[in-house]
Design a protein around this nucleic acid. Structure first.
Length: 594
RNA sequence: GGGGGUGUAGCUCAGUUGGUUAGAGCGCCAGCCUGUCACGUUGGAGGCCGCGGGUUCGAGUCCCGUCACCCUCGCCA
């Protein structure tokens, strides 16, 4: 060992001991006669003092040292003189009186200072990730990730789950997200696909009798990225046999409680609140509502029924909805300009406009369309329970548009008005999703989750009569308005599976071609089973109070899915392409301007 | 694919209505400094103003295009 202790370890109890430390030079404060070196490692920081008592050679060596050099020091742990204790450091009561300093490695001047207070731009951080990861904040994030994954593994291990690895090289399935493809050298023109999730494998493990499966699984989806989406991400993948939805949710609730307790010191009351999908859409306009604050959506159809205001009338006559949000006491807080901004949010959500109203002290509505309300005015006030000083936002459009626009407004208002505490955590379930949604492109039915999702037993007859009304045995875990996990009970009988395939427009031949092995397996004694997948990266992000998934991933990619450090993706040697029988058809060059 | 934001010194940023020599803090280099801990202090070096066009007597600043990064809609069963 090159060291006897870490840089975060020394305390007054070590005073008088001869110790050796290794680490990175965090900062140097050279006072000519005495030099202070803050030595940093992942455990903390310790002040090393090179002074008149140190050997002359050590003083010379210390003079040359620069930030981010890697050094090894030996010396005596001493109490700091009166008045020089640093309460900001865990090791701040002691210091190392250095009698030898060995430079293990010099370092070029870093592009930015890991110990600095100014956070460099993300482009710089990603390009020099090894430096970025030296920053204590990033180290904390990765330690948090380790702890949380450990809790997950312990939790499932204790419940008898078995960790099984599934292949990374699999078969492409055209449903769902775009696949990342890997060409097959031994079969020209054929491709593997990286898994979007281990969905089919885990079902096969149930059919094989493993009963309770868990895996920390890397997943790949070649879709456009967001603050909370990376092209490769990690799921805690879970599957159980002989269970219903409540059983799966119960296991996850136990994990939620345990994680909240151990990581945040927070007691979560179980069972978690459950909203049906219908209720979530009705009250919040979204299937992953942020329940840290209110601002519920209120239906105003009855209130405006008699109104002549054509915006309302047109929406209702067209089979749409008129819905609104009451923002308590916010009338004075929103200027004309800010209301224009809110209108822009609504328009971004697909609405043609936004009706805003302020309730004045006299009980009269104020706003551009206030005088058009007529008898609807008092009715709206009653329906929303509005009080003077309240701001009301109303969207009249199709159900989908009112959901989207009001959801976006709600999100915006929650953040802008600070309606929740920074550290607040809210966990809930959204259940009973529709089995099918209309596919915009084909006009046919599309699976809301995936084609193996079981309908609720009571809804089985609806598969023939009214697929739109058919609800799935599906459940999404929502944390602070973020989808943190989702799962379903699977179809385990061939007849139901065939029927669902039929509705999805997947012919028997196609089904056999794509998932023949699963169909065969389902006929070989498949137990009732179901599971869930948790987005680990998102969990870490949410529990860490972060707003960006890249900060909990050691080596993330940019929004264009490139790695600024390695330069991936990059062209490959012609020889490599030849072995794979691949010819690159370069995209046409963009025309020069003019 | 669409919308928005950003791009000026190694890093974080300022830069007026288009005007002469583009600034600050941090970092870097050198000097001074024996108790600092974001040490202090004196001096110095450091610029393809993302890139390419255009307008203009003159462009960091205006216009067009383009690239990169970020946020977002579509997309993500």
């Amino acid at each position: 060992m090159l060291r006897t202790h870490s840089c975060g370890e020394l305390r007054p109890s070590h005073i008088g001991q001869e110790v050796g430390l290794c680490g990175w030079v965090d900062r140097v404060r050279d006072h000519k006669g005495v030099i202070f070196i803050d030595l940093r490692d992942r455990w903390g920081r310790t002040q090393v003092v090179v002074g008149p008592e140190s050997p002359a050679a050590t003083l010379v060596a210390a003079k040359a040292v620069r930030p981010e050099w890697v050094v090894r020091v030996h010396g005596l742990v001493g109490a700091r003189p009166d008045g020089t204790v640093n309460p900001k450091l865990d090791t701040g009561a002691v210091e190392l009186a250095c009698h030898s300093l060995e430079v293990l490695n010099e370092a070029v001047t870093p592009v930015f200072q890991p110990s600095g207070t100014e956070l460099p731009g993300e482009e710089v951080r990603l390009g020099h990730r090894w430096l970025d990861l030296r920053r204590p904040a990033m180290q904390r994030n990765l330690f948090l990730r380790h702890r949380m994954v450990k809790i997950m593994r312990d939790h499932f291990d204790e419940l008898g789950f078995i960790d099984v690895e599934t292949p990374m090289l699999g078969k492409s399935t055209p449903e769902g997200a775009r696949d990342y493809l890997v060409p097959a050298r031994l079969e020209h023109g054929a491709f593997f696909a990286l898994p979007q999730s281990p969905q089919l494998y885990k079902q096969l493990l149930m059919i094989a009798g493993f009963d309770r499966y868990v895996q920390v699984a890397k997943c790949f989806r070649d879709e456009d990225l967001r603050a909370d989406r990376q092209p490769e991400f990690t799921q805690l993948d879970v599957e159980m046999s002989f269970v219903d939805a409540a059983d799966v949710m119960g296991v996850i609730e136990g994990l939620v409680r345990r994680t909240a307790r151990e990581v945040l010191g927070l007691e979560v009351t179980l069972p978690l609140p459950r909203l049906s999908w219908d209720e979530a859409m009705e009250r919040y306009g979204h299937d992953a509502p942020d329940l840290r604050y209110g601002l519920e959506l209120v239906d105003l159809a009855a209130a405006v029924r008699e109104s002549d205001f054509r915006v309302f009338r047109a929406a209702l006559e067209g089979g749409g909805r008129v819905r609104g949000i009451r923002v308590p006491g916010a009338a004075a807080r929103f200027s004309r300009k800010e209301l224009d901004d809110l209108t822009a949010v609504a328009v971004e959500g697909g609405a043609k406009g936004l009706v805003w109203l302020k309730l004045e002290e006299g009980g009269e509505w104020a706003g551009p369309v206030a005088k058009n309300l007529g008898a609807a005015g008092p009715a709206i006030r009653t329906a929303l329970g509005a009080a003077p000083g309240d701001l009301v936002l109303i969207v009249a459009d199709s159900f989908a548009v009112t959901c989207k626009a009001l959801h976006m407004l709600r999100k915006r208002l929650g953040a802008q008005l600070g309606l929740y505490e920074p550290g607040a955590m809210h966990f809930s379930w959204v259940v009973d999703f529709p089995m099918f949604a209309r596919d915009e492109e084909t006009g046919g039915w599309a699976a809301m989750h995936h084609p193996f999702t079981a309908p609720r037993a009571a809804d089985l007859p609806l598969l023939d009569r009214d697929p739109a009304a058919c609800r799935a045995q599906a459940y999404d875990l929502v944390i602070n308005g973020s989808e943190a996990g989702g799962g379903t009970i699977r179809i385990h009988d061939k007849a139901t599976q065939s029927k669902v395939f039929g509705l999805l427009g997947i012919s028997a031949e196609t089904a056999r071609e794509r998932f023949g092995f699963l169909l065969d397996a389902l006929e070989s004694g498949a137990p009732p089973h179901g599971g869930i997948a948790l987005g680990i990266d998102r969990w870490i992000m949410l529990f860490g109070g972060l707003d960006n998934i890249r900060d909990v991933i050691a080596f993330p990619k940019t929004q264009k899915a490139s790695d600024l450090m390695t330069g991936a993706p990059a062209p490959v040697e012609t020889k490599q392409l030849a072995e794979l029988a691949i010819r690159v058809v370069a995209p046409p060059k963009p025309l020069p301007p003019g």
